[in-house]
Amino acid sequence: MLWEKEMRVPNTAVVDGKTYATVLGMVRDDRFIPLELVYKPKPGDNVVGIVTNVRHAGYSIELNLPYDGFISSKFTRVSFQQGDLIYGRVKFVDEVGNADITDAKRLPAGKIVDVPASKVPRIIGKKSSMLNVIRDGTGCSIFVGNNGYIWIGGKGNLPLALKTINFIVANAHKHGLTDKVAEYLNEHGGDVKVPPREEEKPPEEKSGLSEPAEETPEPAKEPETAEPSEPSEGEPVSEKEEKDAGSSEEEKQNPIMHSKSAGAAEESGEVKKKGIDIEEM
């Protein structure tokens, strides 16, 4: 059980006025952070996909989902070929989970990495902080899709970028990760100016926990001050557009959860989690 009261949070379910988790995750304040998650497309999500079929009315896109997404040729001027890598936005999802994609653009040849969808927020970081560190450190250009596909290309140090993403995925449940990644990049021959931006708030931690001092460059202001964080991690990568996606997502999710006669799968005890984090820091 997560909370004694009724909460409308994605990936949870309410039974008898109590909120239960439906997937393995952690609790921080009023947020539930899933550690394992099966990706479900939502309108506004940015996705990376592969064109698998060229059809009369549009293109089928492989999105790491049970069924292919679709780009209607009505709404796109670009023409694609089978095997093209694309970066687009989910426009509409119907009741059986088919995703319509708009604003698609073709990505040049690059590498597609498949990461668990639950780790994507960590790879992006708050306001793309993590992503910028990786971009800085490796010189690669990176596009992250909420569906768990990541496109890496450009002239940078590609193997290092891959290794870094691997590192993030393996350590996604720990906090202070941006600094660690910067360190990791420097160790492995990347060059990162040690993060000039203000501290990232680790989204997965209970706020009361402070970070052990040895490792971080500037540990002083790291913990606490966890401002009631808007769910900005879910936010797309591409710099300019939609900041408004967040709220509509939320509403989209809730009716689904509510209709379930559901309850707790895991109460991954926060207390335990704390212990783990401290040890491994």
Partner: peptide, 19 residues
């Protein structure tokens, strides 16, 4: 069971990707 799931996050090789 719950313990096993928690412990799986202590493992280093957790979440290694196929690269």
């Amino acid at each position: 069971q719950a313990d096993a799931l928690k412990k799986s996050y202590e493992k280093e090789e957790r979440g290694k990707l196929k690269l």
